[in-house]
């Protein structure tokens, strides 16, 4: 297991919390909550080690279009970048619904 964390600037708006996914093979769980400051924080626990660069690439791309100040608590069980992207998108949809 590897723990990773990333940090992104945010516009200051706070999202509503959301929970999606499951820590099952090829999938991941995301807990989305408003952050305490004006930034977005991503904390990852992943079962697959050695993919920090891939996580950074996926998250950099995703947070180009997401401005809210949120904490993303991600628990990954070997999801592909495509699955990660879809779960992130789903978390935001649930948060806004």
């Amino acid at each position: 297991m590897e723990r990773l964390s990333f940090d992104y600037p945010a516009s200051g708006e706070k999202p509503k919390r959301a929970h999606v996914g499951v820590v099952g093979s090829g999938d991941l769980e995301i807990l989305l909550e408003p952050s305490a400051d004006e930034r977005t924080h991503v904390a990852i626990q992943t079962s697959v080690t050695g993919f920090a660069d891939t996580w950074k690439a996926v998250l950099d791309r995703f947070f180009e279009g997401y401005e809210e100040a949120a904490n993303f608590d991600i628990r990954d069980c070997g999801a592909t970048p495509g699955t990660v992207m879809m779960r992130l998108q789903q978390a935001i949809e649930v948060s806004r619904s």
Partner: peptide, 10 residues
């Protein structure tokens, strides 16, 4: 689970 290198679920 984390003590045994396994990702826990919330």
């Amino acid at each position: 689970l984390p003590m045994q290198d396994i990702v826990p679920q919330s």
